[in-house]
Amino acid sequence: MIRVILPAHLRTLARLSGEVALEVKAPATLGRLLDALEAAYPVLEGTVRDHTSKERRAFLRYFACKQDLSLEGADHPLPEPVVRGEEPFRIVGALAGG
């Protein structure tokens, strides 16, 4: 299972209290992980990626294993420690605004 840590506002919206554990079909890629997240929690559709273009929302970033994966494409493979569930995949809101 792949572990995902969401920003607090999205945890509230999805009525989650902690990490999300997701089954992602191999090969596990960035796009497949986000597809699985939205399938498990449809309320998150449109809040991480645009509904139609599937582009990441501008003020969110993706991090895993100390790497910034924000600019990687949907086919980018997830790091092995994330696939094995040893490390979480983090969706992080930009520290900006009031």
């Binding site: 999205l10 809040t47 969110l60 809101g93 930009a94 605004g97």
Partner: peptide, 8 residues
């Protein structure tokens, strides 16, 4: 709504 998370 939110600049971070879009529209709900």
């Amino acid at each position: 709504t939110s600049d971070w998370f879009g529209q709900v």
